[in-house]
């Protein structure tokens, strides 16, 4: 019954419940967003060990801020904002390589189009292409891939909506230039 109640509660309500001491509410909230955040972080960095570390830091930041949480914005927006910031902090701490996505797996098939067998390789190729984008364009594209609206991306990145729109446009154009007709 309790889990059913959590299921129909909003993110903000769950966070408030956790603030009031209900750890079950946080568990539900975590399961709702853990994979989306992990995917976002992985696409932005491509290194699973780094992603785990950054994801843990992000969720710990959420947990530590719970006691003073007030639902002034969408929880999901807030969560990804923290995640993005933690990732930036990580690359600031660790001497960054030329491109973090260079370590992503090399595509095993020519980039003529995604077949059933080489789809994973194609995904990795796209991922590397995304990693070569400027950080602002990359973040805007990856957040858009997570289903965020322009306003949400604007709130997460701190850029104006028009700026976000142009970043998305430039990012897609650049990807098309790299990947050709395969997109």
């Amino acid at each position: 019954m309790r889990k059913l109640r959590y299921r129909f509660s909003s993110d903000e309500a769950l966070m408030l419940a956790y603030r009031d001491g209900d750890s079950g509410a946080f568990e539900c909230l975590y399961h709702r967003h853990k994979d989306a955040l992990f995917t976002f972080l992985y696409r932005g960095c491509g290194q699973p060990n780094v992603v785990e570390e950054v994801a843990q830091e992000t969720w710990e930041a959420v947990i530590n801020a719970a006691s003073r949480y007030t639902p002034s914005a969408k929880f999901r927006t807030w969560l990804f904002q923290i995640g993005r910031r933690r990732m930036a902090d990580h690359w600031r701490r660790v001497p960054q390589q030329e491109s973090p996505l260079q370590e992503a797996a090399e595509p095993v098939a020519p980039a003529t189009g995604p077949g059933d067998e080489d789809y994973t390789a194609f995904e990795q190729r796209v991922l590397r292409a995304v990693g070569e984008l400027p950080a602002d364009q990359r973040d805007a594209l990856l957040l858009r891939e997570q289903g965020f609206s322009l306003a949400d991306i604007s709130a997460i990145t701190g850029a104006a909506s028009e700026t976000v729109k142009s970043r998305l446009r430039y990012g897609r154009t650049q990807l098309r230039a790299q990947l050709g007709d395969s997109l």
């Binding site: 994979d35 992990f38 995917t39 696409r43 843990q56 947990i63 891939e145 997109l183």
Partner: peptide, 26 residues
């Protein structure tokens, strides 16, 4: 949408975070 890989959070990370959440629950 772009053809990008989907990732799942590893179970050991989930356990770690949830344990921390329970320990730090107000």
């Amino acid at each position: 949408a772009l053809p990008l890989p989907e990732m799942n959070s590893p179970p050991q990370l989930d356990e770690k975070i949830l344990a921390h959440a329970r320990a730090r629950a107000p």
